[in-house]
């Protein structure tokens, strides 16, 4: 039952996020706003709700499974972009490798090493 109680909490915060997105000019999806609100609520209480922790582990483990159905459609419409395939693939492959390299370099340059942050 703990998992169902946790799920109810998640749904309540999702609805809260949905209402905020509709009422205020926030350009974010309801789920992300719900996540931030739930984090703030944990901060206010100073601890996490055990039911939410119980449901979060199986749900986070399922993330990859939940993304997958959205990917299926591209195999059926890929033909439409055949003449652009070279530009699209080069942009995605080279662009992503370049951006990974820049972000790793930037963060190594500006992030303090692991053991030093413990003293702050």
């Amino acid at each position: 039952m703990s998992i169902m109680r946790g799920l109810l909490w998640l749904l309540a915060f999702l609805l809260l996020g949905q209402s905020m997105v509709q009422l205020l000019p926030i350009p974010l999806p309801a789920g992300v706003v719900g996540m931030l609100l739930l984090t703030l609520w944990f901060v206010r209480r100073g601890k996490m709700n055990a039911d939410v922790v119980a449901v979060s582990h199986p749900l986070i483990a399922m993330l990859a499974l939940l993304i997958m159905p959205g990917v299926v459609e591209i195999f059926f419409v890929a033909g439409r972009y055949a003449d652009q395939a070279g530009a699209i693939l080069t942009a995605l492959l080279v662009g992503t490798l370049l951006s990974v390299a820049s972000s790793l370099w930037l963060m190594r340059r500006y992030m303090p090493p692991l053991n030093e942050t413990d003293h702050e």
Binding site: L10, G31, M48, P69
Partner: peptide
């Protein structure tokens, strides 16, 4: 397929909210 799978991917909403747990930790 998409119509049916939408019932499963509905869980993407609560799963995103659940990311608050590792974030808080």
């Amino acid at each position: 397929y998409n119509r049916g799978a939408a019932w499963l991917t509905l869980l993407l909403g609560p799963a995103t909210v659940a990311l608050a747990v590792p974030l808080y930790q």
